[in-house]
Design a protein around this nucleic acid. Structure first.
Lengths: 127, 127
DNA sequence: GGTTGACCTGGAGCGCACTCCAGGGGCGAC
DNA sequence: GTCGCCCCTGGAGTGCGCTCCAGGTCAACC
């Protein structure tokens, strides 16, 4: 048994079967997922590993089209490592930028929360 | 001059005029923005302050519908502070959850970057 | 008084990332 | 052999959050 079904794969990586088919059709995977005799997909460990990396990229906000570009680079084989690295670096910078932005805005919200808490305390005391 | 034009307001808060109109129509603001004699919107300082808070909420990923709920609470006036606070708290928790998730996934990507950097160094040395 | 430019409205359109569906095939259990 | 279940495909539909557009008003400037 060299692979798992799409339902099992979905379960392992935390996506739905529909999403896995969509990713494959959209060129996000390194190869067409192998099939068994009746045409059902059989995900091997390498497929799952790659999909887990894809979910890391997606979960950090990389757009589908960039994942596709990255997959294309890996698919093209050795020799473009600089390009892959540049893509990952650019993404990393973008993620850090967004983390900083969210953190800053969260600070403002925390401030607001503090104000409400203070106000409610006052009400409590005066009650 | 008790207010600024929509273009100026958009500029101040970092949104577009279209988005400001959309927010207003969608119930994200505390009140219909006041108009001048010819029907043009005039944003006052309170409007701008509120919109800045809205952008904080949006920038941290709060869905439009939750911003609308929050706006409705504030519009309803005093007496529902606990509810507002609960909403903000829930959002805060959600943001922290997402920050942690992104940070974790970013770690995996950093690891990948490290691998490529190492590999490229090796290539350099052997060249 | 004609032109320009900013604003108005209602509503259509768009990009993204899925998500769902109809219609059909294969296979093991009873 | 038929029931139930999982899988297949191509394509349509969905939700979100804007973004754009046509057609019109108004004030200012030349």
């Amino acid at each position: 048994m060299p692979g798992v079904t799409i339902a099992e794969a979905a379960d392992h990586v935390g996506l739905t079967a529909d999403t896995l088919r969509y990713y494959e059709k959209d060129g996000l995977l390194l190869r067409p997922v192998p099939r068994d005799a009746s045409g059902h997909r059989q995900y091997g460990e390498p497929d799952l590993r790659w999909i887990r990396l894809v979910t890391c990229l997606r979960a950090t906000g990389m757009p589908i089209r960039d994942v596709r570009r990255y997959a294309a680079l890996v698919r093209a084989g050795e020799g473009n490592e600089e390009e892959r690295l540049a893509l990952l670096h650019a993404h990393r910078e973008e993620v850090l930028r967004r983390l900083a932005e969210v953190t800053a805005h969260l600070g403002a919200i925390d401030h607001k929360i503090g104000i409400y808490e203070h106000r409610l305390e006052e009400l409590d005391r005066s009650a």
